[in-house]
């Protein structure tokens, strides 16, 4: 081998950032934040360092499932404009490397979470990875328009895992936090599917927009948003709710329902005329919606610690 051939081999060396991108860092922020809130909202406390490690391992587990998802979906990621620049379709990382990293980090995160906290939390993390990779990515995503509805459960588990890490079990409050993310996921992704017009069509992913049409998707967004609003407001009456959560839920759910009604009342001609401005606004609001609700749960914990919370109406 000459220096020239070595240079050619190493020219496209993947950088550390390329491997880190396999872990879907933006999704990881949601995982970290919701797991952190689930952990802090739990009645039993953890040592701060153990709590930090628990959130870190949950994040690594979430990242591992992201890497396995990229390994499996490399073919459709290459077709979709939104995902074409990911490390595998862009050729920076090979599929085998992604598989290796995903499996290694999955095992590592589950075992270390079990050792650091308890095996209920570790089992929930293992199930989350399995659900996201096998149930959602391998099975539902390419076979049913309900892919987002059922697959959304994977993204909803982190607060439950955080709660289990602190308490060693599952309770009504942790199931409600799970339900909030579960119900939030469909309108969030369907709004994205409405304005990322041809991406899912090109990739042959049976999103609701492709299988049932855009008017049906708009109707579904409204129905799920109404159900979500009812759930979010009901949560204010449980022990994870409080004055901050109630205020946040009232304001944001009013805005969210207003946005869903606006989407429902529009047709494609109107949407194309303003380049999907309403749908894009709804999508951005959905991000704020989730972070604000979980932020409010956190704020209520702080208020309760200061003796200012009302800790649930029932």
């Amino acid at each position: 081998m000459t220096d020239i051939s070595l240079q050619t081999l190493t020219e496209d060396e993947p950088q550390f950032g390329d491997y880190f991108a396999l872990l879907k860092p933006r999704v990881m922020t949601l995982v970290v934040f919701t797991a952190f809130v689930g952990l802090l909202a739990a009645p039993d406390g953890l040592h701060p360092f153990v709590a930090f490690c628990a959130v870190l391992f949950i994040a690594v587990g979430g990242g591992a499932s992201g890497a396995l998802n990229m390994w499996w979906d490399a073919d459709i990621d290459a077709v979709m404009r939104r995902t074409a620049k990911r490390p595998i379709p862009s050729g920076r990382v090979s599929r085998d490397e992604a598989l290796g990293i995903g499996l290694t980090l999955s095992g590592f995160s589950v075992v270390f979470l079990g050792l650091a906290t308890n095996w209920v939390a570790a089992a929930l993390l293992a199930f989350t990875i399995f659900f996201y990779v096998v149930v959602y990515s391998m099975w539902l995503k390419r076979s049913t328009p309900q892919n987002i509805v059922i697959g959304g459960a994977a993204g909803a588990f982190p607060p439950m895992i955080g709660w289990a890490a602190a308490t060693g079990g599952v309770s009504v409050e942790s199931v409600l936090m799970f339900a909030l993310i579960f119900m939030w996921t469909p309108p969030h992704f369907w709004a994205l599917a409405l304005f990322m017009r041809s991406d899912y069509d090109d990739a042959g992913v049976p999103m609701l927009t492709v299988t049932h049409g855009r008017p049906a998707t708009r109707r579904h967004i409204l129905i799920y948003t109404l159900l979500l609003a009812a759930l979010a407001l009901a949560m204010a009456a449980t022990s994870v709710g409080g004055p901050a959560y109630l205020l946040c839920a009232l304001v944001l759910n009013a805005l969210f329902v207003k946005g869903a009604v606006a989407i429902w009342r529009r047709d494609e001609v109107q949407a194309e005329a303003d380049n999907y401005a309403v749908e894009k606004r709804f999508f951005k609001l959905s991000l704020l919606y989730l972070f604000a609700h979980f932020g409010a749960i956190l704020a209520d914990q702080a208020l309760a610690a200061l003796g200012l919370g009302f800790g649930g109406l029932f």
């Binding site: 190493t10 060396e13 550390f16 950032g17």
Partner: peptide
């Protein structure tokens, strides 16, 4: 082929090695 003490490869792989 002998690698020099500071080969180009070391520069290219620096971020990866540092990260690991």
């Amino acid at each position: 082929m002998s690698l020099s003490r500071r080969h180009d490869m070391h520069v290219r792989r620096f971020s990866r090695n540092l990260g690991v």
